[in-house]
Each structure stands twice: as C-alpha cells, then as structure tokens.
Design a protein around this nucleic acid. Structure first.
Lengths: 188, 188
DNA sequence: AGACAACCGGGACGGCCGTCCCGTATATTC
DNA sequence: GAATATACGGGACGGCCGTCCCGGTTGTCT
C-alpha cells in the first residue's frame, strides 16, 4: 500500500508519539500541538504531517494503549475457571481501568467527552476495549456474581466517577474504599 | 456601598443572567460570551460590564441555583425524625443533584473541573452546597444507614458518575438502576 | 558520488474567544 | 425640559490554537 518511511521520519514519528503520550497523560488533552512539537524537539509541521489533526495524534496513542488493555482483559477472561472467579476478573479489570485513568489525564478527558469521541477510535474495530469489558461483565452476570440488569454504560459511569475521585490527590485508601463501594453496589 | 442600578441596567442584567443560565444549562460552558450576548439581544460590552469575566457570569448563575439546592437540603434535614429517614434524606438529595446535573451541562462541566473551580464559588460562603450535603451524610452515618468511612468526596465522585451516565440519553430506568447501585454500595 | 525524492523546520494564516474602550443614546435629577 | 451621569452597542485588540505551506536540508537509490 504505502512505501516504508524514511529512517529519520520513523524516528521522528516515534519520538513525537512518545512525547505526546507522556504529555497528554500528565497534563491532559488541553496541551497544544505546538507544545508537543517543542518538547519533542521537532517543528510543528513534522507533527501535523505524521498526524494530520490533534485527534489523529491522540487516537494513535490511545490505540497502542488499548491494545494492551484488551490483552489484559482477555487474559483475565481466560484465567476464569470456577464460577466465583468471573466477577473477580471483572473487578480486576475495573481496578485496572481506574489505575489507568488515574495516571492518564488525556484518557480522562477523552472519557469525559471533552472534545473527543472515544467511540470513533473503537470504530476502527482493531481494539475494542469496551467490547472486551462487556464480555467480562456478561460472564460475571451469567455466573451470578453481578446483578443482571447492569449494562456496560453503567459500568463506564461508575468508572468515570472513580477516576474523577483521583483528581483530589492519589489516596490509595480512598481508591480502595470507592472500589469496595462499587463492588457492593454491583453485587447480585 | 453602591448606588442602585439604573432601570434599564437592571433589566439587562436580569435578561443576560436568564439567557446565560438557559444556554449554559443546555449547551455547557463552551458557549462563547459573544453568543450569550447575541441571544440576549445586547452588546458584548453590556455582558462584560455586569460580569467582568465569563467565570463571574457563571458564578452568578450557580449562586442563585445553589441557594435553592441548599434550601432543599436543609428542608430534607429538618424533615428527618426517625433513624430510618436519615439516609432517605441523603439519597433524596443525591437524586436531586443527579436530576439537576442531567439538565444542566454547565454544572457538569463545572463539576468535571473543565476550566472552572466549583470551590471558588463556595468560598463566598453564602451557599455551601457541599457543606449542607456533608451534614446530611454525617447524620445518615451517625444513624447507621451509611457506611461510616465514606466521605463527601466519594459521594461527589459517585454523583459525577451518575451524571455522566445521562449523556447517552435520558433513560429513567437506567437512572433509577444506577441510583439503586449507589444506594447498595453506600449502605452500611 | 550525484540526483532525486522525501522530509524537516517554523513562519504565516485564519478562526475563535475573552476583554476593553469610546462615541452614542437614554434614564434620572433638578 | 434641560443637564448630567450612567449604560449601551459593537468594533477593535491581543492571545492562543490547529493547520497549511514553502524554502532548505537530508536520506536513499543507482
């Protein structure tokens, strides 16, 4: 389809991706593309050539991260044998997502829908995080660990809340408490 | 301290406030001040004279709404007699806040911290919504209806989640289900 | 090594937003 | 009803952001 990139272009692309991932994670989606370019030590043109829009840049970041998350979710799904473990797998992934969101302001912004559509990324159908999670939920519900009427949107809402809690400082005790509240609430 | 405003100034101020409240509620904090002025049928200067900054404008809106919310919270607190009712008052206010947030995108934006500090409004100390709510929580905890280790930040996080859920369409069934989940989670 | 294509840097452009300012119009006061 | 302070309208300004483009440079292939 497309010819391989020139060596320096590959380097720059990777560097921009890396810097952008760190920056968005640390400071959220509000950082300007100019700032990303500056920190990566390249011109703004270089960024916009590899990633035509800011959204495309963030998509690229999210995509690689989502790949890992889906793998974790599937690994958790694999590891379930006894009925009891199904809901554990679900909650383990929930905790993982909270942790992810806590250290990734960009993801929080994306989830909050602040000018970015999470679904459009998933529409590429390569890494369907929510789909993988829905599967974990379905199994846990079938096994009777989680109330049957809950849907994945409810779960996402609770996740948003948990992540929001992290804004006022990272407090492991508070995080565990909130997770416990969610567990109790979702229990069948 | 200050002389009374001229009659037309009072009218304009009230009109701007009204239009801004509707607009922010319907479309969130991202609407421009120019647009508010246009819809109110006044010049941009008129808006910025009454409310020097956009934040000041939104503060003024929030302040009047918060007054009503605090009154509701206090009324709920008054109405509690039997031990059982304490947590009912708390959850009633929770539901009220969810409803409020569902029909008020500006408030959601403010809660999400998108460029606006909710606390700075409360710092005026006239209407302390969170304080009033904390009081409801405290009583419900003392009465044993809600687990003792929960703090008001946890509650706010859950509220954020519930309001977030409303983004994907207003579904009364889903709302009730999510509220039920929260109740179960917070129960002592 | 030379020629060509690919890529880089960063300035320039257009758009949007919040805020300020000033000539004009209008309410208030005597 | 005239004088005066007060408020209005909306254009102008400065800042920021995302995107595009072009003159110069650097990798790549023969």
């Amino acid at each position: 389809m497309s010819k391989p990139l020139r060596a320096d272009a590959q380097r720059n692309r990777a560097r921009v991706l890396e810097v952008a991932a760190e920056t968005f994670a640390a400071e959220g989606l509000s950082v300007s593309v100019h700032e990303i370019a500056r920190r990566a030590g390249v011109g703004t043109g270089t960024v916009s050539r590899h990633f035509p829009t800011k959204e495309a840049l963030f998509e690229a970041i999210l995509l690689s991260r989502m790949e890992q998350l889906v793998q974790r979710a599937e690994a958790l799904a694999e590891g379930t044998g006894q009925d009891r473990a199904y809901d554990e797998a679900f909650f383990a992934f929930f905790a993982l997502m909270v942790e992810e969101g806590a250290g990734n302001r960009g993801l929080v912004d994306a989830l909050a829908g602040a000018g970015f559509d999470f679904r459009s990324v998933e529409a590429e159908r390569r890494y369907d995080v929510m789909g993988a999670w829905r599967e974990l939920l379905r199994r846990a519900q079938q096994a009777g660990g989680i109330r049957a009427d809950v849907d994945i949107a409810d779960v996402k809402a609770l996740l948003t809340g948990c992540i929001d809690r992290e804004r006022s400082g990272v407090d492991p005790v508070a995080r565990a408490r909130l997770l416990a509240i969610v567990r109790e609430g979702l229990r069948a």
